Simulated assay, not measured.
Amino acid sequence: MRGSLAILLIATSVFAQPQHEVVLDWPQLPEDHVLGLCAGVGVDAQNRVFVFHRSGRSWTNPFPKETISQPTVSVFEGGSGELLSSWGANRFIMPHGLTVDHEGNLWLTDVGLHQVFKCTPEGKVLLTLGEAGVPGNDHTHFNLPTDVAVLRDGSFFVSDGYKNTRVMKFTADGKFEFAWGAKGKGPGEFNLPHGIALDTQGRVIVCDRENERLQVFDARGGFLHEWKGPHIGKPYGVETGANGHLFIIDGGSPSLKLSERGKAVELDATGHVIDTFGSQGDAPGQFQLGHDIAIGPDGAVYVAEGTGKRVQKFVRKK
């Protein structure tokens, strides 16, 4: 791997006053609408917030064979939090990643089915990759794929994820191009590549979750940087804002003190911390296993929680 090892370590006492605050009573969730563990979240250009959730299903080993009978994708209006629609019943086994591409399509990963799906916002399947229920490590199979990042030309990266510890690149029509990564701690190696995103420079940002770091690559998988430290924690999800800043959600690293775990982090394009907000807990503005993060067209930040079984909205303080 080319590039140099750049490690970012920042003291936890630098940013005492968060620049973001939680929006209370968001979303407006009907009493009979169960989210359960919220695995993925994304926002389209119309400010619709899409949440990929497990509708009460728990992570078990082995996974159930039957699909979830209730809707697994809920669509909210970003401003009011009103539930606009829901779909995905009887289609998924273990929902995981959700990405909205530049055309407004949704990319969903199911770690139970070992598949990646491209869908319309209404749920029509446009493209399916992987063989249903069959794990593998060749070019046509995944093994618990976690997330997708899509370029403007429609080509995309898949973090393939829990078992294969690699990143795969595909053309817009789903043809395999190349892959990189193996199990390990070195540059370009992974211990559970979980979230993945592209920044405004075209770099590939990977949440190397169990190695407790972000790895930054060029568009061909060439290693550029490693960012880690107490403010990074254990990154689960990553997204890029319109200003080029990166937002990550720390799922909660056991290597940190309880007061330092489980927060959202805003980084500039060089990996320096701009803001941290939230903490571990179940109160509004706190997180119980933050699992994914997304940025709306108005700059609002959305965090999907696992154990907390909710999605929260944050805005920049005025």
Rank of each mutant, 00 (worst) to 15 (best):
P145C: 03
A11L: 14
L256A: 07
K228F: 03
F170D: 01
P95W: 07
P284V: 00
A172E: 12
I249Y: 01
H194N: 10
I293H: 08
G233P: 04
I274F: 00
P187Y: 08
L144G: 02
L113M: 13
F314P: 10
G78N: 01
V148H: 01
G40L: 04
L267D: 11
F277N: 03
F50C: 04
L113F: 13
M94Y: 13
A11M: 13
P145V: 02
T128Q: 12
E77R: 10
F223N: 02
P27R: 05
K318Q: 15
W26Y: 13
L108E: 02
I274V: 15
T60V: 12
K313T: 06
E103R: 14
A45P: 05
P135H: 03
L9E: 15
F170I: 01
S253A: 11
G79T: 14
E212S: 09
D173P: 10
P30E: 02
F15Y: 11
G285A: 03
H33E: 13
A39T: 15
D268F: 05
N61M: 11
D275H: 04
V301D: 02
G154M: 06
A89N: 13
W180A: 06
K65H: 06
E305T: 05
P230N: 06
S253F: 00
S58K: 14
A6I: 14
L192S: 03
P64D: 15
S80H: 02
H102F: 07
V150K: 02
L258W: 11
N191H: 11
Q312I: 03
V51Q: 06
P135W: 00
G186W: 08
P187Q: 12
G229P: 07
L9I: 12
G40S: 08
E189N: 02
G278P: 04
G184Q: 11
G290R: 12
N143E: 06
G56T: 08
G97V: 03
G195A: 06
D268R: 09
V75T: 08
T270L: 09
K163T: 10
L5N: 08
G271N: 04
A39M: 14
G56A: 05
Y302D: 02
V125A: 11
S253W: 01
V204D: 07
N47P: 07
N47L: 02
E131I: 08
G296Q: 01
L198T: 02
V49A: 08
P135F: 00
K257E: 12
T140A: 10
E260T: 13
E103F: 10
V206R: 00
G184W: 14
T99D: 00
G278S: 07
F170Y: 15
A16K: 15
G202A: 04
G88S: 04
G229R: 08
F63L: 13
